[in-house]
Simulated scan of single mutants.
Amino acid sequence: MSEKQRKATAYWKENVRYLILLLLIWFLVSYGAGILFKDVLDTVKLGGFKLGFWFAQQGSIYIFVLLIFVYVRLMNKLDKKYGYDEE
Rank of each mutant, 00 (worst) to 15 (best):
G34D: 10
V16E: 09
F27T: 13
I68Y: 08
A8P: 02
L36D: 12
G34V: 06
K50W: 04
D85R: 01
F27C: 15
K7T: 11
I63T: 06
F64M: 13
K45Q: 15
L46R: 00
V72Q: 09
Y82I: 04
F49V: 02
V40K: 05
V65P: 12
E87Q: 15
A10I: 07
L19A: 05
E14I: 09
G32C: 04
L21Q: 07
G48I: 05
I35G: 08
E86C: 09
W26V: 02
Y71M: 07
K38Y: 11
G32N: 05
F27I: 15
G47C: 05
D39C: 00
R17G: 04
I68D: 10
L67S: 02
L36Y: 13
M75N: 08
F64G: 04
D42I: 02
V40T: 14
G52I: 01
D79V: 01
D39K: 05
I35C: 14
W54Q: 03
V29T: 12
V44R: 08
T9I: 15
M75S: 05
G83E: 03
M1H: 05
K81P: 02
N76P: 03
L23G: 13
G83W: 06
R6W: 12
Y11L: 08
Y18C: 00
Y18G: 00
K80R: 07
A8R: 09
F64N: 02
S30G: 14
L66H: 00
R17E: 01
D85W: 04
N76D: 13
F37W: 14
L67W: 02
N76V: 13
D39M: 02
I20H: 06
Y84C: 11
